[in-house]
Design a binder for these strands. Structure first.
Lengths: 153, 153
DNA sequence: CCCTGATTATTAGTGCACTAACTAATGGAG
DNA sequence: CTCCATTAGTTAGTGCACTAATAATCAGGG
């Protein structure tokens, strides 16, 4: 038994040892690091994620977007309203299924994608991270996500 | 040039490849996984983190707590007010420096620590994660945090 | 055809987290 | 001792994110 491995249950409550704490802080910090990069585009970080989803496919329903982002529809609705106010998307009831709301990019929204192409390299530079680092971390996060989702008994 | 390594700039905007997205989702998911464990203790996740800070040292000032949690004092103030309402902490001006507010555990707050001792093992079980996994991920998060903080030019 | 149950989106209400602006107290520099 | 920059905390206002409740629409079975 080395001193280094002497981990006692008492110490499990030390703040500095909490994974959940490190994870929360990392998330907040990284999102905060995006702010100055996204602000010139008129987007917040969650709004940026919505735009990513729409740049992949448009139109798509609120439900579809919320599934893609793993967010509740109730969270997505106000996000989309703000993007509509900003003239980046339109919201209209789907013909044939009046329950569903189609969200579609406007020309302005489509055009914003060109500026967005610069975001990932800028952020990787700002965070001093390589594609490989990012990819590895990404994998770890995905494992954690599926474990956490699975625990939702 | 293998096919696997054929990463083009165009693909950098794919939602599924965003580290920031995976990080946000992981943070939300893990915090959500804590909810059913913390709820019987009457704590939310951020409130739990505040209690961890106070179990390490009490009393400490609002400033001190907010530094420990890397949160703005404006975020911590309402958290502390709720913990005070719950009878877990007291808030009183520091003798000798009327600007500073001392936050101290009550007996009830101190006693809650016993229940909290069960939280880390429960969560590791729920997330199916070993101490080693957690420690490794923790390190990665810390690197990311310092990189993100450093980018705050 | 109508009733029932499921699906889709929104609203209301709670709690974080941030920035900016404010109040109050402190501690020097002149 | 007075003025003033600094420090500590709170308040106001914006935006997420969740749950629960509501409204509207749809699809199937009697």
């Amino acid at each position: 038994m080395s001193v280094d491995n002497d981990l006692r249950a008492e110490d499990d409550l030390l703040l500095e040892r909490q994974l959940c704490f490190a994870l929360s802080v990392a998330s907040r910090s990284v999102v905060a690091a995006y702010r100055p990069v996204l602000e010139p585009m008129g987007l917040t970080h969650p709004q940026y994620l919505v735009m990513l989803a729409l740049w992949e496919r448009s139109p798509r329903t609120v439900r579809d977007v919320s599934d893609a982002l793993l967010l509740e529809p109730a969270t997505v609705t106000p996000l989309l309203k703000r993007l509509e106010e900003a003239g980046l998307v339109t919201r209209s009831r789907q013909a044939g299924n009046e329950r569903a709301l189609d969200v579609a990019l406007t020309d302005k929204g489509r055009k914003l994608r060109e500026k967005a192409l610069g975001v990932p390299p800028t952020m990787m530079a700002r965070l001093g991270i390589t594609r490989e680092d990012a990819s590895e971390l990404h994998q770890s996060m995905m494992k954690l996500i599926s474990a956490a989702q699975a625990s939702r008994t």
